[in-house]
Simulated scan of single mutants.
Amino acid sequence: MSLPKKRKIESGGGGSGEGGGEGAEQEDGGEREVARPRRAWCRQERDQQYYECYSDISVHEEMLADRIRTEAYRLGIMRNCAALRGKTVLDVGAGTGILSIFCVQAGARRVYAVEASAIWQQAREVVRLNGLEDRVHVLPGQVETVELPEQVDAIVSEWMGYGLLHESMLSSVLHARAKWLKEGGLLLPASAELFLAPVSDPTLEQRLGFWAHVKQLYDVDMSCLEAFATRCLMGPSEIVLQDLCGEDVLARPQRVAHLDLARAGLEQELQAGVAGRFRFSCYGAAAMHGFAFWFQVTFPGGDSGKPLVLSTSPFHPVTHWKQALLYLNEPVQVEQDTDISGEITLLPCRANHRLLRVQLRYKVGDQEEKAKDFAMED
């Protein structure tokens, strides 16, 4: 899943450190004006805000219009029709219900479509329109609180956010796995992998180079603003979503994380941070603007024995997830065989567990090691 609507991240906090807080006095006894701290949102309020976003039809239009995504789910489900035939399925975050219907088309006896946002009402209409009320039961509410009448044989969910872990929906799938999935039950998809590569962003390159061309346009030299533009565009610690292509990748991508959804302890790993080390050797000369990371998820092969992979790689057709970019503070010129190394960690933001935070340590060639922290916009 992903949220196309964006807002600036709210500053975290609301609590006060030692000696601080509203109404504090100066040491000399004089009064000082203290800004009233904004009330920190609790986890329940953050979740409610998140679910409300999915009540908007535009979100579901974007996801269903992504043919790569939706066809991969349909084929991944159909390849497992033998395992689903006559069985029960839990659809976590069912949205408009299309994955639940795919499961019925694959032979599932009953599907419990759990949806926490108000779109569950439209999902129920879709189920009714397709004459599947007796086989798809739409249950409004969070999967953490909804009660099912039975254990299920399989769980299906499209839980992936931008950069894989934005939105933190995987934790809900893992909760459902622990509470409702039968021993040895089927998970669709079954695993996820995270990839990283150094990249050059042609869109950013064009924007930075614009200031050198203003004189040609208007006979006014503004080339001095390129450094300012670099600070404005590359300085912020924001995870940028961009559609890249294979030619923008400067070294062979590396897998930095593998998540087996059946693995015990995965929930604790997500909270502590999904981390991986990397080392690249550049293909050739280019301006490196940062790193891009993307993911792929794998569905079991079923009777065919051949797993199905849904990839968001820049070497594959574009999806609505695109790629997630981590800009350096300024471009770095690399050459053939330039060595790039470091470590990346993905974890939830402190102020809002739904937002993705990335900690990056990196070293390019002979430069000193640097560090930069990033966050995804809300």
Rank of each mutant, 00 (worst) to 15 (best):
G235I: 00
P236L: 00
C224G: 11
F228D: 11
E247V: 14
Q216I: 10
D221V: 03
S223Y: 01
E247T: 06
G235R: 00
I239Q: 08
V249P: 13
R231P: 07
E238Q: 09
M234Y: 00
P236S: 00
L225Y: 01
S223C: 02
L244G: 07
F228V: 08
E238G: 01
L244E: 04
T230E: 04
D248Y: 06
V240Y: 04
C224N: 15
R231S: 09
A229L: 04
L241K: 06
Q242I: 12
V249D: 08
E247A: 15
G246I: 05
D243Q: 11
V249H: 02
A227W: 15
A251R: 12
V240G: 05
L217A: 14
Y218F: 04
V249W: 02
E226P: 11
R231A: 13
L250W: 00
D221L: 10
V249Q: 05
V220E: 02
M234P: 02
Q242M: 15
P236V: 00
C245M: 11
L244H: 01
P236T: 07
L244N: 08
A227V: 15
L217P: 07
S237C: 11
L241G: 11
L241E: 08
C245F: 09
I239N: 06
M234C: 03
A227S: 15
G235Y: 00
E238Y: 04
Y218P: 01
D219E: 12
D248H: 00
L225C: 04
E238K: 05
M234Q: 06
C232T: 05
A251T: 14
L217D: 12
V249F: 01
V240Q: 11
M222K: 09
L225H: 13
C224E: 14
M222Y: 13
V249M: 07
S237K: 05
A229H: 02
E247D: 08
L225R: 01
V220F: 04
L233K: 05
C245H: 12
Q216M: 09
L250C: 09
D243R: 04
D248W: 12
L241Y: 07
V249Y: 02
F228T: 14
L250S: 01
V240R: 05
L244Q: 08
Y218Q: 12
L217N: 14
L250K: 02
V220C: 08
L217H: 13
D248R: 02
P236W: 08
S237A: 09
S237L: 01
E238N: 10
D221G: 10
V220I: 03
F228W: 13
P236K: 02
M222V: 15
M222D: 07
G246H: 05
F228C: 09
A251H: 00
M234K: 03
M222G: 07
D248P: 06
P236D: 00
L217I: 15
L250Q: 06
